[in-house]
């Protein structure tokens, strides 16, 4: 007798009537001896018959009359215009770089105080920056000038107060 597993594998062909005579005989022989498989197949046969009762809702002729004209309208719709730079990657890259530079320049203009830090004693700047930023060593290692470090790391208020409190050095 064939196994229950084989019955499962042959079920679709059995339900569709495409099982060979020999396989069909073996299949039905199994069903006659295995009530579990017999019940499984019985319910599947009923399910298949049931779903065949499904009726398709037909669309009216007016719908079909408008189908092609509607499709043609869709086809004739102009595709969305491509951005001019899209086919030229180099131009796109240049545009993006220029935009980034513009944004960076704008931000630094907004953040940078119009203060003359060069006149401030370096030790004042370094002390202030070291007190407020532990990453200073890194920046020094990168050979930045203390003025640059202060500009980059210190908030505008602190820079203002530094300049105001050290007026004597600039005079």
């Amino acid at each position: 007798m064939i196994s229950c597993r084989k019955v499962k594998r042959w079920t679709v062909d059995y339900l569709e009537g495409t099982l060979s005579e020999k396989k069909k005989f073996l299949f039905e022989e199994h069903l006659s001896k295995c009530s579990r498989c017999a019940q499984e197949i019985e319910t599947l046969v009923k399910t298949q018959k049931l779903v065949r009762l499904k009726v398709r809702e037909e669309m009216p002729e007016t719908f079909w009359a408008h189908y092609l004209p509607r499709l043609k309208r869709r086809l004739e719709e102009k595709p969305l215009p491509r951005l001019a730079w899209r086919p030229v990657p180099a131009l796109a890259l240049a545009t993006a770089t220029a935009l980034v530079l513009l944004v960076v320049a704008a931000i630094s203009l907004l953040r940078t105080p119009s203060l003359n830090l060069e006149n401030l004693p370096r030790e004042v700047l370094v002390e202030e920056v070291m007190a407020s930023n532990s990453e200073l060593d890194y920046f020094i290692a990168e050979s930045f000038e203390p003025e640059e470090i202060a500009q980059a790391l210190l908030p505008r208020e602190i820079l203002n107060s530094l300049v105001n409190n050290n007026q004597e050095f600039t005079l």
Partner: peptide, 21 residues
Amino acid sequence: VKANLFQALQKLRNRLKGYVE
């Protein structure tokens, strides 16, 4: 294809038990 058909039919049978049992 056959495996998908078998699984689909089993799921449908389970959902439509009220009709087929």
